[in-house]
Design a binder for these strands. Sequence first.
DNA 1: TCTGTTGTCAACCATGTGGTTGAGCAGGAT
DNA 2: ATCCTGCTCAACCACATGGTTGACAACAGA
Lengths: 124, 124
Amino acid sequence: MDEDDRVSRAFAALADPTRRDIVGRLAAGDATVGALAEPYDISIQAVSKHIKVLADAGLVSQRRDAQRRPCHLEAEVLDLMTKWIERYRRQAQERYERLDAVLAEMHDDERPIHLPRPHQGAAS
Amino acid sequence: MDEDDRVSRAFAALADPTRRDIVGRLAAGDATVGALAEPYDISIQAVSKHIKVLADAGLVSQRRDAQRRPCHLEAEVLDLMTKWIERYRRQAQERYERLDAVLAEMHDDERPIHLPRPHQGAAS
DNA sequence: TCTGTTGTCAACCATGTGGTTGAGCAGGAT
DNA sequence: ATCCTGCTCAACCACATGGTTGACAACAGA
């Protein structure tokens, strides 16, 4: 499974509120499928499927303890996600600050807002 | 739209590789729908729909410039996402470190790995 | 006014997703 | 051996999603 796919699965996994809630509870400590299912009024099979999605995304691992399958939160993928997000957030932020500087520098020039913005050859 | 829903939409939006790529390119600067669509070999309508998803998630805004609809990356929601992730990642991390400390403290005691782990009353 | 450019809307299709119920497996407990 | 518990698998259903094509709205320029 390549990196991009892992990121996709991770974001898709956390797009569901029930799964986010499960992750939140697992952050406080490992728990069995049954214990995790208890607060929701959906079937235990549905919760099992949610956990499978989280596991396939690498966000959760399950060990074996007799009939029980305790779930454990794996934080690594969370790191992957923040790294992805922060990379672009920071880039946008920096660009914004640079723009601010440009605007400040030409504060007495009456150019309209349309800055050059050179983009790869298409359009216009 | 409530907060949880916004987070859901944001994660769902970034679960698609094409949309992540679009966000990545927008981080470098605003761009029109046509310019954004150019590298992909899907229809421009498909790209337009992707942008709509990003806009509904609050990740992108569009202004109007004649026929063109230049897209702009809105970084706030990215912040929301990292906050959500980091909260639980940190919590899991701390728990892990605490567990390490406990294990270190009882290094000459031969207790099995099954720590008490008090969880809300269900199961076992 | 007519034409070309840019983008959205609508309808449709295939596939994926979250839920259900029912069956069944693995492994204590009696 | 038998039963109960904890969980997963399989089949099914309704609906969402990503893609298509075709029509058309908005606007610049001839």
